Amino acid sequence: MGVAIRVADETDRELVVRLLDDAFQDDPVSNWVFPDAAHRRAKHPGLMAAFTDVVLAEGRIDLAEDGSACALWLSVPAAGDHGGGEADTGADTADEDGPAQLRAAVDPDNERVELIGRLTADIHPEGRAHAYLWMIGVAPERQGEGLGGALIGSVLDRCDREGLAAYLEASNARSRALYERLGFELTGSPLDLPDGPRMWPMWREPRGAAQV
């Protein structure tokens, strides 16, 4: 489908945070991090704001022009390559102190805020440079319209042109099915959160020009 997409900037911060908060309130992983619904409503926006700030500073946020969907991307360098720019961060939560700092800023008494960062960092592939789709959020009333696929596809087209792999963690079976249709495959073993849901690490090799 044709979706007008632009790169978000600081003026879009509140829009992106609200969009992610709405999109992930009922996500299995968000429900695991914040099991109590009232507590989740209070603290979840702060977590989405922290993620948004990281990607605004270090990566790229693609935003549907009508504000209905957004995708948060980070550029992860090859192992040993720390040349600067947005490739320096990978996932900021992969930094040794990142998960603890995130917990302190968002919900100090909630160890799961820190744990999710450490567990996803542990399964993140190392070695090859790749584009990391950290999060993609679609307004609940617009889900099922193909917005997510359109947002992701625009970056995957660039990955194909540049010969760049892509990586993500699917947090539910529905999103996993979408990513499989876009060419992602399970890499390694699924991550089973303690007493919680499963996440699927997924990798996509760039497609050759004849396949695009």
Rank of each mutant, 00 (worst) to 15 (best):
R18A: 12
G163P: 14
D66E: 13
T120W: 10
Q211M: 07
S175M: 02
L156R: 01
A210I: 07
A177K: 05
G148Q: 04
H130I: 07
P206Q: 05
I61H: 05
D192P: 01
A69W: 12
M135A: 08
G146T: 05
D92N: 01
L186G: 03
A64Q: 03
E86T: 03
R142C: 12
G148P: 07
R204N: 07
D81C: 01
A23W: 11
M135Q: 07
A139D: 14
S171L: 04
L74V: 13
P35T: 05
F34R: 00
S154I: 07
A91T: 05
E10T: 09
Q25V: 10
A173C: 01
W203N: 04
D92L: 08
R142K: 13
T52P: 03
A100Q: 10
G46Y: 09
G98Y: 11
G127M: 04
D12I: 04
H130R: 01
P190E: 12
R176K: 14
D92E: 11
A23P: 11
D122K: 02
P140F: 11
A49C: 02
A210T: 11
S68T: 14
G83W: 08
G84S: 04
A8P: 14
E65C: 00
A71K: 00
V55P: 02
S171K: 00
L115M: 09
H82W: 15
G117T: 03
R174L: 12
E86Q: 03
C70K: 01
E126I: 04
D12M: 02
W200Y: 10
V138T: 09
A42Q: 15
F51W: 10
R181H: 14
W134V: 11
G153P: 09
